[in-house]
């Protein structure tokens, strides 16, 4: 991908750009020359089946994994191999909602939400608690929930606490890893609405990965489809039904027959 493609119309660099990213685990090649650009304030949803490299892509941007080849740019600066304090500094611009919520079970809910404020931003605890309770309110949870421990919450509430934690530091970039997986359809929609509301209020750049099309349609400005470790189609959300791409058609219609073959042995 040329450098020119990674800038917006105003000539500013894209918020996130992945260029020819490769990642393999032993003989298994997961990312295979992946290119993806996310503009400032844009919400991109990457769809794709299980095991196609969605999570690995996200972890490479966050620095939890390091690509074997290729470049990752955040706001025009290369971050592919950042470590130590530079990585810690960069992470202050990010928020992340994990698939399994990943709340710290040794801390009460409010301390989970305030964690980035206390440890990352060095706010004093009363101020951080006030913000945490405010953010819990923003995701529809009362102050009394703040004193509970994560194990005392239902799955949907845990996801909402995790969302509150992801937005607590008001980051510029927010990642959502399968935000609706494991929730009932109504709670899934509540989470979708909250994501849209929070991202819009913060004016944040968002990258989500999901295989829930209802969620993708609601959250996304633009949808990209990943297959075998590379992006095979990307376009505005309203074009996803007329993509003309047989892989995308098969995926969004949930058909077993099509160009994507699942590895299923006959019984």
């Amino acid at each position: 991908m040329s450098a020119a493609a990674a800038t917006d119309p105003a000539g500013r660099p894209a918020m996130i750009a992945l260029e020819d990213v490769h990642k393999a685990f032993g003989p298994k090649r997961v990312l295979n020359g992946l290119d993806l650009t996310i503009g400032r304030g844009e919400s991109v949803v990457v769809i794709g089946g299980s095991g196609t490299g969605k999570s690995v892509m996200m972890k490479n941007v966050l620095g939890l994994l390091e690509p074997d080849r290729g470049r990752i740019m955040v706001d025009g600066r290369e971050t592919t191999h950042l470590h130590g304090n530079e990585r810690v500094q960069l992470m202050q611009r990010f928020g992340m909602l994990f698939q399994g919520a990943a709340l710290f079970d040794s801390l009460p809910v409010w301390q989970n939400v305030a964690f980035g404020l206390i440890q990352g931003r060095h706010l004093d605890r009363p101020a951080a608690k006030a913000i945490a309770l405010d953010k819990l309110g923003a995701v529809g949870l009362g102050a009394e929930v703040g004193e509970l421990f994560p194990s005392e919450l239902s799955g949907g509430m845990q996801k909402r606490v995790a969302l509150a934690r992801a937005i607590a530091t008001e980051p510029e970039i927010i990642f959502f890893d399968e935000p609706t997986t494991g929730l009932d359809p109504i709670m899934g929609d509540v989470i979708n609405d909250l994501i849209v509301k929070c991202v819009r209020e913060l004016g944040a750049t968002a990258l989500s990965i999901t295989h829930d099309m209802a969620s993708a349609r609601k959250i996304a400005d633009r949808i990209a489809m990943i297959h075998e470790g590379r992006i095979i189609w990307a376009g505005p959300v309203d074009q996803v039904d007329d993509s003309g791409n047989p892989f995308v058609d098969q995926f969004i219609n949930g058909r077993a027959e099509g160009p994507i073959r699942m590895q299923v042995r006959s019984l």
Binding site: Q89, G100, F115
Partner: peptide, 17 residues
């Protein structure tokens, strides 16, 4: 348990080593 439930990854994303 923190490792397998991604809590260690969450620490990193919250600017904590």
């Amino acid at each position: 348990t923190m490792r397998v439930t991604e809590q260690i990854d969450a620490l990193t994303t919250l600017s904590t080593n």
